[in-house]
Write a protein that binds this DNA or RNA. Structure first.
Length: 1070
RNA sequence: GCGCGAGUGGCGGAAUUGGUAGACGCGCCGGAUUUAGGUUCCGGUCUCGCAAGGGGUGGAGGUUCGAGUCCUCUCUCGCGUACCA
């Protein structure tokens, strides 16, 4: 097929140019670029670290043997377009790429063929790199990392040692050195001290039952087991006790949950993490065992239903089952336990349809009414969650009900459903009103919970408790191709390898299978395992997730041999300096206006926040008085999401009137600094659904009470949640008296507010793009490691990834997910050969919104390819291209050299652009800029197409206009844009990469005459010709006079005429 | 079951705080260039209707001068999770 343009020559040429020029290198603090580098050409003498940075990251791939598939470049293209766009906008962009190269496939290939996994990995990396480079991404390859490189995994091992040498201090909730751990008085011997320490480390050894996958010959983390099968390969997984390394991620559960509030991830992704962490609030309640001194502790989220607890269930593995079973029931209990222990998780799940269980013969005493309740065992109660025992309330829990019905146990209704919600009280699990519940009768569920917990605590029958689903992270694998642990064993105890002895290299082996005794493959290397000093090495390796937990940090300084990352580089790229608190009230007001405008603009799906205050010591004391929270130094922030929320809930006067409130207007935000610095009243509202503390500030201004509610979004952040106004005064719980009686007083007070000189919380990676498949694995693990490193002072942000965007999956042409077995896999190499990298990139983005799932369609590639051909013909004389093609047929080896003979299109000239031309150009600049800000690549491309369709008709094509167009095209199709820009004239720095991004001027977009739509009763009936100056009255007159409209309104009564400026006019008739 | 998200032409998808539904591309139809095919260029393409006009964003209601967009109910699909008390 004839090529639309010689992309096969242009693309490699520009890729070589960028590589030779190091066009896309990012510069660490103190390492300025050479004077001739295009970065220096653009920014002059400015130190790179003085520029605003942008760290844009892709999820680095596992280089599989199959090579790149079309899903990989989807995210990579999106980030590349944004990276190139922001570079042109003047940001200092860091955009790196590397390889997550440890993994099972290379090891399995090694077992089969004997080829060292390193060799397989190197081959695959080389292939991936070739494919990725062929797409012309603007990566800084000097920062490339590979997790299997000893210079990389040495630092993975080092971070493991940081975990090993740390514990979480319950007083601060933060990780600190294990040396700060104090021993209880009864721990006196060295042996006991060591044990106590080892029990507190963040990396610790456990002998608990683990997920063992016989097929893979390794254990797996909870996150890697799906429906009782391995996530990789779908092999069965069984529970089996083994000695394993664990990481204490559970100590960070609450912080991992809280800090989700501070980052810009999609709601669905945050929700997945929340579900995985699985926080639930409730109470532990002790049930005394009948005729015994002992009691059994249960966990429940519904202590208010205690009167409805008619039996109790223990998990079969519960430690007291043996003791409880009566002689009559012993045989049945034993049998049930035996059967349960034989079941794999898979079987337990699959057989879950039908409830099973056995009565132990024993009874417990319900503490609220002293009634005996039978104790059962059943495998629907899990040993690993809560206390491994429950109180069963069949009337208000679906599972308990099912069980009770099967075994004919009593059901007692103790919660009345709200009227209309459920006619059937049996099985009602929602909130209602307590009945038949002693002193709780008549209380709504929330209050009943609080009251019963108070009672339980007072009578010492139980206490308030919070439980998490999250389990500690099983961190060892029985594999060869992973990071060896920097741990040795001496006399049955583990010890850390000295930092100076890192990296611990894996031994060379001939056989990569596990040993016949079931030990990991590393155990085969007897010489390696046994050390001269009599210690033996740990033979497990780390899981694949280890390397990906911190690679984004290594990119900042990938060649450093002294530290895992240079401190200054980390501080600069992870960002600590934006945004600042406005220095004064005036600036604050300007920034506020910006933020409000932003909240209602098209770009509003990006989070933008404004810091408007900091809690000083006096304030902190006052807050501590009401809430018990220590909030000194906390910053107040307002973001665009909050503004939208407030507008939605409290911005409409209709809604507010009914509640005796007034609508919040954008002007009201200006009171925020005063509200937080000099409130009449501060209240602590307790924790919200997500377990976050809510604080209410209120202030009376001229008879109206303004109320602000904030949540503590992280340890140092109070985020505005909502805000409303109402008539009246502050409630009785107020601290202090109202300070202001008039608005003037308030304004006066505002002028005295002092703005603290602080910077807002750090950012981390500015934009991270990747698939959803890592929602609870990589992304949770990485956040966990990052928090440990943060606590220990090694990094400066509490969160690694400020903004995260998930790309949608690309389906096959048949609408099914792409897979080898379906035979619908699209190979990028083939597409690039036929249409070129620019067309491939463009199509990947043109398919639809980045985050959406969408099917591939090769015909669609032809569409964008034709578009690039039209761009080419906009600039290049068609005759000369035909001549070129003929010449190449005669002398194929001259193809490259002959390119020099191509001529520019004769319509290109230095004429003054016409108003129409400027309008087309500036409309394009505006649309593309807006769309790139909002990551709407598909509509951005369509704007480029609209411009080209228009410009193709021009008989005179001013260089100036087309040159600016090429800058807009550059992020999307950089090879073609660079080529044409080079032919159009000299480009400073010899690349478009650092040319300033064009700005649009609204003056060019104004139309002289407008065809203004006229509706009658909301239906389009005609148009009138107006100008931007036409008055409302004139528009109304023209609309009513319009001929087409007349036939719809004559003989009818015109009730109302609505003129919507810049939109339309609507005539309402009866 | 629970949680989250999405339903718009033959297809992928566009539609500012509610304001001309279907941008852009694919496909299809017609025309021009070409010996022909391919390429390129021009025109058409939600639907019923000759037209005037009517209908139309999964379905049913509602709010509004005006609803793809907001509210209530409902159906379908996708993703996540699953005995987590």
């Amino acid at each position: 097929m004839r090529r639309q343009y010689p992309f096969h020559l242009i693309e490699p040429r520009w890729q070589q140019h960028w590589e030779a020029q190091e066009t896309f290198r990012a510069f660490n603090p103190g390492e300025p670029p050479a004077a001739e580098h295009p970065f220096a050409v653009r920014h002059g003498d400015a130190a790179p670290e003085s520029l605003e940075k942008y760290y844009i990251l892709d999820m680095f791939p596992y280089p599989s043997g199959a090579g790149l598939h079309v899903g990989h470049p989807e995210g990579y293209t999106a980030t590349d377009i944004t990276a190139r766009y922001l570079r042109m906008q003047g940001r200092h962009v860091l955009h790196p790429m590397g390889w997550d190269a440890f993994g099972l496939p290379a090891e399995q290939y090694a077992i089969k063929t004997g080829q060292h996994p390193r060799k397989t990995t190197e081959e695959n990396v080389a292939n991936f790199k070739r494919q990725i480079k062929g797409l012309g991404f603007s990566y800084d390859w000097s920062r490339e990392v590979n997790t299997t490189d000893p210079n990389y995994f040495r630092w993975s091992q080092w971070i493991f040692l940081q975990l090993y040498h740390s514990w979480v201090n319950p007083a601060t909730g933060k990780a600190e050195s294990i040396d700060t751990l104090e021993f209880p008085a009864d721990i006196t011997t060295d042996e006991a001290r060591r044990e106590y320490r080892d029990d507190h480390r963040l990396a610790f050894v456990s002998h608990a039952p683990v997920n063992w996958c016989p097929e893979l010959g390794t254990v797996l983390a909870n996150e890697e087991v799906i429906d009782g099968k391995s996530e990789v390969g779908g092999h069965p997984v069984v529970r089996r006790p083994m000695r394993q390394w664990m990481l204490r991620i559970t100590a960070f559960a609450q912080r991992l949950l809280d800090d989700l509030e501070t980052i810009d991830w999609s709601d669905s992704l945050k929700e997945m993490q929340r579900n995985w962490i699985g926080r639930s609030e409730g109470a532990e309640v002790d049930f005394r065992i009948q005729e015994s001194e002992n009691s059994i502790r249960v966990f429940t989220t519904r202590p208010d239903t205690l009167w409805g607890a008619t039996y109790m269930v223990l998990s079969p593995e519960h430690e007291w089952v043996d003791e409880l079973a009566t002689d009559a029931q012993r045989a049945a209990v034993e049998e049930y336990r035996e059967a349960a222990s034989r079941k794999s998780d898979l079987e337990r799940t699959e057989l879950a349809k039908e409830k099973t269980g056995v009565f132990t013969g024993a009874f417990a005493i319900n503490p609220v009414n002293d009634e005996p309740v039978p104790i059962w065992i059943a495998d629907y109660v899990l040993a690993s969650y809560g206390t491994g025992a429950i109180m069963a309330v069949p009337a208000h829990d679906a599972r308990d009900l099912e069980f009770a019905q099967k075994f004919e146990l009593p059901v007692r209704v103790v919660v009345q459903a709200p009227e209309g919600e459920s006619l059937e009280p049996l099985g009602f699990v929602g909130d209602g009103t307590s009945v038949e519940s002693g002193f709780l009768n008549g209380l709504p569920t929330t209050e009943a919970k609080a009251k019963i917990i108070e009672w339980l605590e007072e009578k010492r029958h139980g206490k308030r408790t919070i439980n998490f689903k999250l389990r500690d992270w099983l961190f060892s694998r029985q594999r060869y191709w992973g990071e060896p642990f920097p741990i040795v064993w001496r006399d049955g105890h583990h010890e850390a390898v000295a930092e100076s002895d890192l990296p611990v290299m894996p031994p060379e082996l001939d056989d990569y299978k596990p040993t016949t005794e079931g030990d990991p493959p590393l155990a085969r290397a007897a010489d390696w395992v046994t050390l001269p000093d009599g210690t033996t090495r740990e033979t497990n390796t780390m899981p694949q997730w280890a390397g990906s937990c911190w690679y984004y940090l290594r990119f900042l300084d990938s060649q450093n041999t002294e530290r895992f990352v240079n401190k200054a580089a980390e501080r600069y790229w992870m960002g600590t300096s934006w945004p600042e608190i406005p220095p004064d009230l005036e600036t604050w007001k300007v920034k506020l206006d910006d933020l409000v405008a932003f909240a209602f603009s098209k770009r509003a799906n990006t989070r933008k926040r404004l810091v408007f205050g900091k809690i000083d010591t006096a304030q902190a004391d006052r807050l501590e008085q009401v809430s018990g929270l220590s909030l000194a130094g906390c910053l107040h922030v307002l973001d665009n999401y909050a503004i939208r929320h407030i507008n939605k809930c409290h911005g409409s006067s209709d809604v507010e009137k009914t509640k005796g409130q007034e609508a919040i207007t954008s002007k009201d935000y200006q009171w925020l600094p005063l509200l937080i610095s000099q409130p009449d009243n501060v209240e602590y509202l307790g924790k919200n659904k997500q377990g976050l503390d809510v604080i209410r500030f209120s202030l009376q201004i001229n008879g109206t009470l303004m109320v602000l509610e904030e949540v503590r979004a992280s340890s140092n952040l109070l985020a505005v949640k909502t805000m409303y106004k109402k008539k009246g005064t502050a409630s009785d719980t107020a601290i202090g008296a109202p300070l202001f009686t008039s608005e003037n007083d308030c304004l006066k007070a505002m002028s005295h507010i002092k703005w603290p000189a602080v910077k807002s919380p750090a950012l981390g990676v500015d934009l991270y793009v990747g698939g959803t498949e890592h929602a609870v694995l990589h992304l949770l693990y990485a956040r966990f490691w990052h928090k440990v490193l943060f606590d220990l002072g090694h990094v400066s942000t509490a969160e690694p990834f400020q903004r995260l965007v998930n790309q949608g999956i690309i389906l096959g042409e048949d609408g099914q997910k792409m897979s080898k077995s379906r035979g619908n896999v699209v190979n990028p190499d083939g597409v690039i050969d036929e249409y070129g990298a620019d067309a491939f990139r463009l199509y990947e983005m043109f398919m639809g919104p980045l985050e959406m799932m969408k099917p591939w369609n090769t015909k669609g590639v032809e569409g964008v390819y034709r578009f690039l051909g039209r761009v080419w013909r906009l600039f290049i004389d068609e005759g000369s291209y035909k001549d070129y093609e003929q010449a190449v047929t005669a002398a194929p080896d001259q193809a490259e050299a002959l390119l020099a003979d191509l001529k520019l299109h004769p319509a290109l000239n230095d004429a003054e652009p016409t108003p129409d031309q400027l309008k087309a150009l500036h409309a394009c600049i505006k649309k593309v800029t807006d769309d790139l800000d909002g990551m709407r690549y598909n509509t951005g491309i369509s704007a480029l197409m609209v411009f080209v369709n228009e410009a193709s008709k021009w008989e005179s094509r001013p260089r100036e206009v087309l040159g600016i167009f090429l800058r807009l095209l550059n992020p999307f199709a950089p090879h073609l844009a660079e080529e044409l820009a080079g032919r159009l004239g000299e480009v400073s720095g010899n690349t478009l990469a650092y040319q300033p991004w064009p700005e649009w001027d609204d003056a060019f977009l104004v139309e002289d005459s407008i065809e203004f739509p006229v509706q009658v009763n909301g239906k389009l009936r005609g148009h009138i010709d107006i100008t931007p100056e036409t008055s409302r009255e004139e528009i109304e007159r023209l609309a009513l006079a319009c001929e087409k409209v007349q036939q719809f309104i004559s003989e009818k009564e015109v009730k109302k005429v609505i003129v919507v400026p810049n939109r339309l006019v609507n005539i309402a008739v009866k």
